[in-house]
Design a protein around this nucleic acid. Structure first.
Length: 358
DNA sequence: TCTGGGGTCCTAGGACCC
DNA sequence: TCTGGGGTCCTAGGACCC
């Protein structure tokens, strides 16, 4: 028996859930995003495969999507329904004998499992998820988390794919560094400035220039990504939130001090609901503001005393905003409350996009 | 036609103390 | 008159992911 990492990823998750309860939408271009109104300021959360054929992608403004496919069906994001579907999926994964399940998001998880035939296990998991939820998923198989995660894309839709030390370079070597999980456009650009463009370039790069460019922790981490190396340990410790925040893009830019203050109070009230539910007080307030046309700033302030008082959080956010001293119209405001850590701290300290050692 | 909302972690640099 | 290191706390801001 060998220890394997499986990465289970639901196919077109939000769109698939919507099609389940609206079967007449099967086969049609379906776009889930915002309030389902493509004339509003909002973006695509998930596009069905049919919608993707028109060039519609996640993160794209709804207004762009409707131009690409005027006949697409636009639906609002319905969080409670997706949460329920997600819970059934994760339950199913946990029920698989010997599986250790680490959630990565609503619609994906790592599954650690000892097996001689990971493809057979992957197929069994796909069948179990389909039976329990009528939803399809793809499964990446790897000898590390990074390789399993990257492998999933080659298995989509409804398939499996295996990436290990043996075929990593053959499959990934000529691809751009951006194809790696954890390398976004900015890091890809900085790597290119070092002459590193492909995964093979990165895998062969010595640590020193990476450390110089990205720092002592991140530099070697990025190098390891190029090799597909890294942790193979799937950790099922329940995730504990560090912070809760709310942000809103306004359909019309905010201009007057009164409407700005009112908007911040609304956000602070919502944030307090969330941290009360968590039972941990706010110790630091983060303000995020996007001025029109598109300049984003963020500021943080530690509170003298942890608090659940929405007025304190709102006043702190307003003070941070005042300090920015920028009177351009505002198109987005965000208030985030960093919470007091739980007794004994975060254990183990970890996260999804974890960077650095080990 | 401008570009969501929920998160996490990392790096750098200043302030301050010993 | 010039000026060491080490450590911690805090803020600013960047980057990534789903």
């Amino acid at each position: 028996m060998t220890a394997w990492v499986l990465h289970v990823d639901m196919d077109q998750f939000l769109a698939a859930v919507e099609i389940l309860r609206h079967p007449e939408l099967a086969g049609k271009p379906v776009v889930v995003g915002g309030r389902g109104d493509p004339t509003e300021r909002a973006v695509v959360s998930t596009a069905s495969y049919e919608a993707r054929e028109f060039g519609i992608r996640s993160g794209m403004p709804l207004k762009t999507a409707v131009r690409k496919c005027p006949d697409a069906v636009f639906l609002p994001v319905d969080f409670p329904v997706y949460e329920a579907a997600s819970a059934r999926v994760m339950e199913t994964l946990r029920a698989h004998p010997g599986a250790v399940v680490e959630l990565l998001g609503w619609d994906e998880a790592f599954v650690g499992i000892d097996t001689d035939d990971p493809e057979v296990t992957a197929r069994a998991i796909q069948a179990a998820v389909l039976e329990a939820t009528q939803l399809h998923c793809s499964v990446g198989i790897g000898d590390t988390k990074v390789r399993a995660k990257v492998a999933t894309d080659f298995g989509k839709p409804r398939g499996t794919y295996r990436l290990t030390e043996d075929n990593w370079m053959e499959v990934m070597g000529d691809r751009p560094t951006k194809a790696l999980w954890g390398v976004g456009p900015r890091i890809a650009e900085r790597l290119a400035s070092l002459g590193i463009r492909t995964v093979r370039d990165l895998a062969g790069a010595p640590d020193e220039p990476l450390i110089e460019e990205f720092g002592p922790n991140t530099g070697p981490h990025i190098g390891r990504l190029g090799r597909g190396a890294g942790s193979a340990t799937v950790d099922d410790t329940p995730w504990v939130a560090r912070a809760h925040g709310r942000e809103t893009t306004y359909q019309h830019n905010l201009q007057s001090p009164e409407e700005i203050a009112a908007a911040i109070r609304v956000l602070a009230d919502q944030v307090v609901e969330d941290i009360r539910a968590e039972g941990r007080a706010c110790m630091r307030v983060h303000l995020k503001v996007r001025f029109a046309p598109f300049f984003t700033a963020s500021r943080i302030r530690k509170l003298d005393e942890p608090t659940y008082d929405p007025a304190v959080i709102a006043d702190t956010a307003l003070a941070l905003l005042a300090k920015l001293d920028d009177d351009r119209p505002i198109r987005l405001l965000g208030v985030r409350a960093e919470m007091v850590p739980p007794e004994g701290g975060y254990d183990p300290p970890r996260s999804h996009g974890r960077r650095g050692s080990p």
